[in-house]
Each structure stands twice: as structure tokens, then as C-alpha cells.
Amino acid sequence: MAELVSKLIINFCVAFGVVLGGAMLGGVAAVLTLQPPTAQMTTLAEKMKIWAVVASVGGSIDPIRYIETQFAEGQISLATQQILFIISAFTGAQLGNSLIQMICKGGTAP
């Protein structure tokens, strides 16, 4: 159980970091190219969410195939774990996006 929680936290943090770090560095790039940084950061954060989830859970379509294989073999608990990893990564990516939106637009996130 401890290993599962550990992997969930790691997936969450990796996805969160991809969105937050990518948007922040995109903001720096926007300043260097004389573009409005907040607009660039919010756009990048929104676009990076799916890539953050993919990077967090393994970087390919393999986790989806793994879920399919485990369901087909009747091993529901292993497939459920993989689904939890994806949900954890999505939550981290969404929180990172919401934080960037809140920072750039001020006030509360959408």
C-alpha cells in the first residue's frame, strides 16, 4: 500500500511540475521575445496538461494497453492501480494549470 501511495504522489508531482515549470519557462521566453508573458503562460499551461499526464505515467500509450490487458485477464486490481496513477497525474496537471491561471489572471482560478 505504501508503494502505491508513493507512486501516486510521484505521478501527481511530476505532472504538476511539468505544467508549472513549462508555463514559467514559457513566460520567460515570452519576455525575451517581447510578448505578453501572462497570456503565453496561460495558453501554455492549458496546452501542456495532457502532455504532463503522458510524461508522468510513462511517456507513451503503454499504460492504456496495460489497463486493457489486465482487464482482459481479469486482474481488475492492477488495472485499477493504473487508472489511479492516471487520475493522480491528471489531478497534478489540473492543479498546476489552475495555479498558473490564478497567478496570471489574479484572484481565483476558473
Rank of each mutant, 00 (worst) to 15 (best):
M1P: 04
A2E: 12
E3T: 15
L4Q: 15
V5H: 02
V5C: 09
S6N: 05
L8R: 01
G17F: 11
G17S: 08
V18S: 11
V19A: 03
L20P: 10
G21C: 08
G22N: 13
L25C: 13
G27W: 00
A29M: 15
A29I: 11
T33V: 09
L34M: 01
L34A: 14
P36M: 04
M41I: 01
T42H: 00
T42W: 00
K47W: 05
M48E: 01
I50W: 11
V53Q: 02
A55G: 07
A55V: 06
A55E: 05
S56A: 15
S56E: 14
G59C: 03
S60E: 09
I61C: 07
I61G: 13
D62L: 06
I64N: 10
Y66I: 06
E68H: 05
T69I: 01
Q70R: 07
Q70D: 13
A72Y: 02
E73L: 13
G74H: 07
I76D: 06
I76R: 12
I76H: 04
S77T: 15
I83T: 14
L84A: 11
L84C: 12
I86F: 12
A89R: 06
T91I: 15
G92F: 05
A93T: 07
A93M: 00
Q94K: 13
N97S: 08
L99K: 03
I100S: 10
I100F: 04
I100P: 09
Q101V: 06
Q101S: 03
I103Y: 04
I103R: 05
C104W: 00
C104M: 10
G106Q: 01
G106F: 00
A109G: 13
P110G: 02
